[in-house]
């Protein structure tokens, strides 16, 4: 109990009356109800609502599917051979994404997939309006995940005391020393 509370009791005001006074004060104040269906809530950019997929960036590396704590990401891909562009060049292989699906009935919204994606193909969107009548509809395929991309907000600016991004701190470093003589490099490599 705080000093204020003790003080007012000493003044002889019964607790019930003080409680009613608090209620009366609140009654006089405006409500804080948010009128959800009519007024959409303003959500912070980091809010974890739904995962959006930018399929062009996905290389089907499977990192997200592997790191997911309940393994709710399904990826199918196949290899395609890209013929050489220059005469005498080598044919290249690249992965083509066939299927990318997230089961939102299983997803625990931890954000590990977004965090581990090395190619920035996954993003959080604050959208939350996707309740379904059938559980099978909660398995969102690639096109549905792609539609969420439009709702992805830009990331917030970071705190002024945050460390510089890696790109900036790399710029600030002194230029790399000129390459050491071949002999020294070889020794270093052995060590």
């Amino acid at each position: 109990m705080t000093e204020a509370a003790k003080g007012s009791r000493a003044a002889g005001i019964p607790g019930l009356v003080r409680g009613l006074a608090a209620t009366a004060r609140t009654l006089a104040r405006p409500t804080h109800t948010s009128e959800y269906p009519d007024a959409p809530p303003s959500l912070p950019p980091r809010s974890r609502g739904v995962i959006a997929l930018l399929a062009e960036n996905c290389t089907s590396c499977m990192l997200c599917a592997r790191e997911c704590p309940d393994w709710c990401i399904y990826i199918d891909s196949h290899k395609e051979t890209v013929p050489a562009t220059t005469p005498g060049g080598r044919d290249r292989q690249r992965n083509v994404l066939d299927r990318f699906a997230i089961d939102f009935s299983l997803c625990m919204y931890c954000g590990i997939c977004v965090e581990v994606c090395p190619f920035d193909a996954l993003f959080w969107s604050p959208e939350f309006e996707y309740a379904e009548l059938d559980i099978r509809e909660l398995l969102h395929e690639r096109d549905r995940l792609g539609q969420w991309m439009a709702t992805v907000p830009p990331p917030p600016a970071l705190d002024e005391r945050s460390a510089d991004p890696a790109e900036v701190s790399a710029l600030g470093k002194p230029a790399r020393a000129p390459r050491a003589p071949r002999q020294a490099a070889a020794e270093e490599g052995q060590a």
Binding site: P37, P41, F128, E129, A131, L133, L138
Partner: peptide, 27 residues
């Protein structure tokens, strides 16, 4: 829970935000 009782609306989230429940109710 749909292995035990029939379910009408599934609200996704872990946990879903309160607005998501409202949307589920509207659905």
């Amino acid at each position: 829970v749909d292995t035990v009782v029939p379910v009408d609306v599934y609200v996704p989230g872990c946990p879903p935000r309160p607005e998501a429940l409202l949307q589920g109710i509207i659905k």
